[in-house]
Simulated scan of single mutants.
Amino acid sequence: MKAADLMGTWRLRSWRNVASDGIGVDPLGEHPVGFIFYNHDGYMSVEIMASHRSPYHDPDVFGGTPAERSDAISSYLSYSGPFEVLEDQDAVVHHIEVCSYPNWIGNAQVRYAKLDGNVLVLSTKPMVFQGVERRAELVWDRIGHD
Rank of each mutant, 00 (worst) to 15 (best):
K2E: 03
V98T: 13
V25W: 07
D116R: 14
C99I: 07
E68R: 08
L115C: 10
E68W: 06
Y79P: 02
D90G: 11
V93Q: 06
E47Q: 07
R135H: 04
D146G: 05
R11T: 08
Y79M: 06
V98H: 13
H31K: 06
I73M: 06
R69E: 12
N107P: 06
F35T: 10
I73K: 00
H95C: 09
G64D: 03
L28M: 12
P126W: 05
F62W: 11
T9N: 08
Y76E: 04
D71H: 12
L12G: 00
D146E: 03
D60T: 13
S100G: 15
W15L: 12
L28Y: 01
E133N: 07
V85E: 04
D90P: 02
S100A: 12
T65D: 08
G8P: 09
D60I: 13
F37C: 09
I73D: 05
S14I: 09
D58W: 05
D58I: 07
G131R: 06
E84D: 14
D116F: 09
E97L: 03
S54R: 15
S74R: 14
I143Q: 11
G8T: 13
L6A: 10
V119N: 00
D116G: 06
S14R: 08
W15R: 03
G42S: 08
G24Q: 10
Q130K: 15
S14V: 10
A136R: 01
E47N: 10
E84P: 00
A67D: 14
D88E: 15
